[in-house]
Design a protein around this nucleic acid. Sequence first.
DNA 1: CTGTTAGCGCATTCAC
DNA 2: GTGAATGCGCTAACAG
Lengths: 338, 338
Amino acid sequence: MDQVNLKKLAKELNLAVSTVSRALRDSHEISPQTKERVRELAEKLGFQPNPHASSLRQNKSKTIAVIIPEIENNFFSQVINGIESVSPTKGYHVLIYLTHEDYNKERDMLQLLRNGRVDGVMVSVSNTTTSFEHIDAWRQAGLPLVLFDRTCDELDVPNIMTNDAEMAFKATEHLLKRGCKRVAFLGMGGNLSISNRRKAGYLAALEKYKIATPPQVIELTAKDYINRETLHQVFSQQPPDGVFAAIEKFAVNTYEVCKELKLHIPKEVKVVSFSNLQAAALFDPALSTIIQPAYDIGREAANILFKLIEKKILMPFEKKMVLPSQLIERASTAELIR
Amino acid sequence: MDQVNLKKLAKELNLAVSTVSRALRDSHEISPQTKERVRELAEKLGFQPNPHASSLRQNKSKTIAVIIPEIENNFFSQVINGIESVSPTKGYHVLIYLTHEDYNKERDMLQLLRNGRVDGVMVSVSNTTTSFEHIDAWRQAGLPLVLFDRTCDELDVPNIMTNDAEMAFKATEHLLKRGCKRVAFLGMGGNLSISNRRKAGYLAALEKYKIATPPQVIELTAKDYINRETLHQVFSQQPPDGVFAAIEKFAVNTYEVCKELKLHIPKEVKVVSFSNLQAAALFDPALSTIIQPAYDIGREAANILFKLIEKKILMPFEKKMVLPSQLIERASTAELIR
DNA sequence: CTGTTAGCGCATTCAC
DNA sequence: GTGAATGCGCTAACAG
């Protein structure tokens, strides 16, 4: 019943525990014959090394943690997929933690993981995160950490993101070129650098095209019903004729409210949004989207984290990596044929 | 720089390591004063017990594994969310493994985890899984395991699922009542009990309503382009007037192909599908869905797993738990007003 | 090439 | 109440 361990193998083979250990780790200082004998018995008895003993001894866990705000979001799912395309090849396991956009949880989790449970962490910070001391504490402790998507410019920590500002500019520009005069920006508030980058791109486009109407920045939340209320109120007074949603969820909220208010998309309101939802093409009308390379972001973030874990030197471009998104124009921003 | 450990605390306090250990675990045989002193210093120095040492000693890892076929799927994301609503309250960590619908990976993962890395496992089997020996091996070893959604009837293992057959019956019945004469079933092939349950419900409805046209079971895959090809071919010959998709992905494929072939939904083809996509209501036309209680499935599966881990006795209803789904009728199955 | 020995950090048994 | 000693299973330093 008991787990088979090195000691048992050693006794059975009349060898020292260390010899067995070395044989199984394919050490060069063990004779081929012995290796073969050991491997054979190990195979036969189904020996599996105890990971906790190894971890304790070698002071590494072969595990990484991924801390994200939520998981019911295609973007983060795809990121995890990307991470998971790398981790098994390194023999690593992946722990998932959800902050539910709660800074306190995020801080506590990061704190809790500073005990050797993981060899490295990948974080996309919550939108209630204003202080980055918990991140910096990791950096200072010299522990491997990578930020992705929801990053922090101020810290000297490797981060992987997309060209948010540029794509926000393009999205806004796209709306303007399609004839919109009053473009609203739906952002998630807080002071995240990602929000700022997207808002900056929006504002830059309005400025470049010398739009007279003042910018309209609407801050939404994680709660759908609150967002619908907010949008309902704003749209029923003076609806914008163009909406640029920084998050997929907000585009969905916009569609819902436009339906309620019988505002036609794209005739009365044109909509474009950051989104990784494949089904966006099936929306009524098909939603124009900025698709982020989520899978690649996950994969690259993992690659960089493993470089840190293996104490390899990062190339300059790996310290701040920007993977481009793609704007897909669909019916929600179609020009009207009169 | 070095991690602070029990030894360091003990030395600092002029106490034995064992005393410190006991104090921190709030043992009754330590005086309140000592406890207080120990806790204070531990707090001050930011002591965190080494999890590998604890795990090695106590032979438990405070970690569970979730093995799922894929993650880019709202259903599984919501399940994880449900699991994660329980695990932190138990002080447990969650490892995620993706099989990508590959039986061999699934078997190997389960095998690999039989070394004490986790205290229990939750599995939703891949659709290429035909043998359940790897699952049964766990059961026989007396290790905690729970199956969810993609379960296995033959094994005596706790499982949590939804009322697949009943809902499949209702969905098919719904199409028939809406006037469909030739209802096709889009399933994922293989021999999963979940597929069989859904197919059985479909067939039962056809039988009950004495449909003359023979059942049309179309088996699709994990690859979108293959599915589109298959559907394109079938639909361009003799399109069904009703489609019941066992998986959300297949409904999306159906929409895509109907668009290509200019088949109007719901006029020419009505569609209903298992789906947990919130945005289904925004599709063109809005998709009628069977929504599974994914979050609850995850939460209950976790609860049951923890009962097993804590060696509590399961109530009979916990061994085979069925949480009901909900049919939401939308425009894709609307009756036509002539 | 192989064996002996010594811990990794913690929890627990047994003393006192 | 507290301390000393032991060992979980593994790896690594050292010895031969």
